[in-house]
Structure formats: C-alpha cells, structure tokens
Design a binder for these strands. Structure first.
Length: 433
DNA sequence: TCTGGGGTCCTAGGACCC
DNA sequence: TCTGGGGTCCTAGGACCC
C-alpha cells in the first residue's frame, strides 16, 4: 500500500499558524508580483475564487466579503514543509517528497490498522506543526491521489460523502461497490496525469468518469495516446506501474525566471535582470554540485497586453567547457540578450535556464579554451555562497547584477508579504504578556 | 492599470549511419 | 509511372504536474 499525504490549502495554512486571526476567513496567497491566487482557503473557494484567478479580478471581494490577500512567502512555506515532511515520514519506511506540500509513503511491511495509524500521524502534524492534512491510502500512486482527493472532498462537503472517508481515506478497506461508486463520481479531469487536452479527447469518445477510463483497454490507450495513459489505466485498476522514488535525483535543468513589476523597454535594465537571474541559477547549480554546458535565456512581452506589439525570443548558448562559475554563466546569458534584444517593445518577463547539466566531479581537466575569458574562480564562488547563506540572499553580487542609477522596473511587486517567522531571527513572533 | 514559477516525461520527425 | 530498409541519436515542442 502507498499513502499520499498533503497539506490542506498549504500556503494559507502556513500563514494561519502565525496569524490565527485568519482562521474562518476567506484568504488567498498571491503569486510573485501579487499577480494571481495560488492558494485559497476553503472560505475563499466557497466564494467561487478559481485557482490562478488574477488578483485584479477578485480584489473587489476584499470589501464585499472580507477577503484577505497575502504575498507569497516561500521562505516560510519551505521551512514549514520540512517540518511537516519529517513527521509524515513516520507513516512508513520510505518517503518520496513529491512537492512542497505532498509526499508519497510506502506502507509495505507496516502492520496493524493503516487508517488508524494515518489518523495518528495526521493529528501529530496538526498539533506540532499546525498544518491540517489529508491522507489517501491505496495500492497505487494514482489511486492514493484519488483517495486523498476524496478524503479532502469528504471533509469539505460533509453531506455528500460517507463521514468516515473524511481526512483519511483507505481505498483498500472499502467494499468494491463503494469503490466503483466513487470512481463513477470522479470526473476524468480530476485524475492525476489527465490535463485539459486529454480530458477533451476522452470526453469526445464518451469517457467522462474514472470508472469509464478504468474500463478502457490499456493497449488501445497506448496506441491512440501514449504509454502514460496506459499506465494510468492500469493504476486505476490497482496494478502499480509508477514506482516510489525515494531518493531525490539531481535536477536536469535549473531555471530562474520572473515577470517584471512594470514593463521594461531598456536594454540595460534587461541586462541587469538577466544577470541577477543567472546568478540565482548559478547558486542553485553549485548547491546541487553540478556543472552546466548550455545556458538558455529568453525575453518576452506580455500576451495579456493586447494593444502592445508582441515579441518573444530565446536562444541557447553553448559553453566552451562545463562550469559552475557565475561570471561565465552571466556572460553567456548576456550574449544571448545581445542576439535577441529588439528595441521598442514592452518586455514583461525574462529568464535564464541552465541545461545539459553534469556532476561537477566528472570534469577531470580544466582547459582554458578561451583566452578572452577570465579563469573561473571557485574560491570567489565559495565565498559568495557562504556570505549569502549567512547574511541573506543577494547581500553580495557580481558587478553585472548591480543596480544602475536607473530605477529598477523589473523587480517584483510584493506588497502584502508576511515576515519569515521561522527562518529569520528578526522576524520571530513575539508573545506579549 | 493589474494574469506565477519551476520542473518532468514523451513523441514525432529530422539528421545521420551503413 | 516506378528510386531501399533499418537503425540510432538528438531536439523541439507538447502535455502535464504542483
């Protein structure tokens, strides 16, 4: 059996731990730039706020419905996630951390009543970390996701599901007619791995529910669509095809991309933004212990500004030799900008991606293949990372990423950010007497 | 006025080989 | 009129995830 445990409305729940006054109120957490809602409390969902709803479209609910909006505070969420995951691991012997708020846990070899055990872990996480969770238990990952989905729905809408399914749903314990009824009540779109495109195509051949899909021939699914859909069908029928991945693999690519707080036209400003993104990406690269062979950079206008002329371009810059040196990575990103920049556009977004990564250890000899480049400087990079780890991100930067005299239109808007309660001494909550 | 960011996997098709 | 067959590797783009 496999369990899927995840935090309910995770970002909102993290904020509520430190601001209990947000309980029972409609709350959303906004994406970078305060652009759109990326987490919603149950009360906010009840107001009809969709995932990804632009803030300017729902802002009126502040006055009419008491909606509270907060800027995303990823430092806080990451730390709360670590605490939650550590306790969740107690469910079984192996854990796959699937996202910031979800993990799969292998329950093989665990004796006793699994649902009871899940309830215990759940209340421990609630008590010690303050995050409410739901748990699905099933023989495959796809069914565990589905069971988790049911556990949440049963908690949120008590009338429409059997009460014992709320919070913890143990698929394996359900009678087969109940399982069938639940599959029939689940829309195809809600199944893990089925997005809008596949859903539309399946609906077209009159497959609407999880039960319909479970009855589709796997080989037909493979021939007409792909091996992914074939696996999903097997998984819905209880045959495990997607294994637990309990050791985190190195990233195959590393990206840093941002939308700008205001439109940017100036080339100098784009240079500054790309240099900053390249630096951030290089830090992630060194933390993973990898070297990069190709640097991709892009700039684009906003497709939402219908009256603006549109332009979007990217290019991949191969490096002379694999490196983790910020200076070289910035240089490559700026080479790309030189090639793709066109004046006269309102740029709204840019980014740097590091592709074709390899472990740093496999590089045996260093050739200085390009005389014009300064030699890589590992000591400088080490110092840079140490200082920034200790005193906060971006305290020291290389010249290209420094602000010019101009105002920085490209920086993010974050007007409603809460403090980093758990990772910054100066932001600790104070208990007053 | 105002619409996120960071990933993975699969497939089709082209280049190239003998 | 009619112009092989089979294989590998790589890449761009699509679809999906949270």
């Amino acid at each position: 059996m496999i369990a899927l445990i995840d935090g309910n409305n995770f970002y909102v729940s993290c904020e509520r731990v430190f601001r209990p006054s947000l309980n029972d109120r409609p709350v959303v957490v906004l994406s970078n730039n305060d652009g759109c809602a990326i987490a919603r409390s149950n009360e906010a969902k009840a107001l009809g706020i969709a995932m990804g709803a632009p803030w300017f479209q729902i802002r009126h609910l502040r006055d009419s419905a008491g909606l509270v909006a907060l800027s995303a505070n990823f430092e806080l969420y990451g730390d709360m996630s670590d605490r939650m995951m550590t306790l969740a691991a107690g469910l079984g012997h192996r854990q796959e951390i699937y996202s910031i708020d979800e993990s799969f846990i292998d329950l093989t070899g665990i004796r006793g009543d699994l649902a009871e055990r899940a309830h215990k872990i759940r209340s421990r996480i609630l008590r010690w970390v303050g995050i409410p969770t739901c748990i699905g238990i099933a023989p495959t990952k796809t069914l565990a996701k589905l069971a988790n989905h049911i556990a949440k729905a049963a908690e949120r809408k008590p009338g429409s599901y059997p009460a014992e399914l709320a919070q913890v749903c143990h698929w394996g314990q359900l009678p087969s007619n109940t399982r069938e009824a639940l599959l029939a009540a689940t829309q195809v779109r809600e199944i893990w791995g089925l997005g809008p495109k596949l859903t539309a195509q399946l609906n077209h051949i009159r497959i609407h529910t999880a039960l319909d899909l479970a009855r589709l021939s796997p080989s037909v699914a493979r021939a007409r669509w792909s091996v992914l859909l074939e696996k999903t069908i097997h998984e819905l029928n209880g045959t495990s095809c997607i294994s637990l991945q309990d050791t985190a693999l190195d990233k195959q690519e590393i990206a840093c991309t941002r939308s700008f707080g205001h439109p940017v036209t100036d080339r100098r400003e784009l240079e500054e933004a790309l240099a900053e993104f390249a630096s951030r990406a290089a830090e992630k690269l060194r933390r993973q212990g990898s070297h990069v062979n190709q640097v991709m950079a892009f700039i684009r206008t906003s497709p939402f500004r219908k009256n603006d002329a549109q332009y979007s371009a990217y290019r991949i810059q191969p490096l002379m030799e694999p490196t983790d040196d910020t200076t070289r990575i910035i240089r490559a990103a700026l080479e790309v900008l030189k090639a793709i920049y066109r004046p006269g556009f309102n740029y709204s977004k840019a980014g740097v991606m590091l592709m074709d990564l390899q472990p740093a250890a496999t590089k045996h000899l260093t050739l200085n293949l390009d005389d014009e480049l300064p030699a890589p400087n590992p000591e400088l990079m080490l110092t840079l990372d140490r200082v920034n780890d200790r005193y906060g991100r971006g305290k020291i930067k290389l010249g290209a990423a420094l602000a010019g005299e101009k105002k920085r239109n490209w920086t993010m808007k974050q007007e409603r950010r809460t403090p980093a309660y758990t990772t910054d001494w100066h932001s600790l909550a104070v208990a007053s007497r």
